[in-house]
């Protein structure tokens, strides 16, 4: 079976790749495009470690065929920090110690940013349900939820706080 040529916009730049017809978008990101920030924890949509934003909506990239991304716009963890400065969600994960091993962290950050992009003032319950598709085995979620709430509070203020260069 010959490979399929796919053209996308990836983290703001044009990106093309070849993929097997049955390859997932996650396979293409990791193995064809060298972006290993999106992780495969399960390959069945049950852990969220591969979360990316495709055409404006967060998805499990393991549950999307790479070929489906033709013409699509993809944002991965590698594109979350803008202008070489961490996004507030990334910054707050660091400040709250909201990661231990860090393997699930990219998926959580992409998902949390997707939440705050549409809901600047979520309740704790809204944060918990929004992030229910992302498994973390290290933290018990406490510090993750606090980091996301804190990032939301900061994003609601106009003044950008001090952030770490990415």
């Amino acid at each position: 079976m010959s490979k399929i040529h796919v053209s996308t916009t990836l983290n703001g730049d044009a990106a093309e790749f070849l993929c097997d017809p049955s390859a997932s978008l996650l396979d293409a990101l990791r193995d064809e495009l060298g972006l290993t920030g999106s992780k495969e924890g399960c390959g069945s949509g049950d852990c969220g470690a591969c979360t990316v934003v495709l055409d404006g909506e967060m998805v499990c990239s393991c549950l999307v065929f790479a070929a489906e991304a033709e013409g699509g716009t993809i944002q991965t963890i590698e594109g979350v920090a803008e202008s070489a400065v961490l996004h507030p969600v990334q910054q707050k994960f660091l400040e709250h110690g909201a990661l231990q091993c860090g393997f699930c962290t990219p998926g959580f950050i992409v998902a949390a940013k997707a939440l705050l992009d549409r809901n600047p003032d979520p309740t704790e319950t809204e944060v918990r349900y929004w992030l229910a598709g992302n498994l973390c085995r290290c933290t018990g979620y406490d510090k993750i939820v606090r980091a996301v709430m804190d990032a939301a509070a900061e994003l609601r203020q106009d003044r950008p706080s001090e952030r770490t260069p990415a």
Binding site: T36, S38, I77, L86, L94, E95, P106, T164, P165
Partner: peptide, 19 residues
């Protein structure tokens, strides 16, 4: 303080076993 390996882990740059 912020952990020394933190930035790499919130930006997806840290390399894990499968990476």
């Amino acid at each position: 303080p912020v952990r020394p390996d933190g930035v790499d882990k919130v930006t997806g740059r840290a390399l894990y076993g499968p990476d």
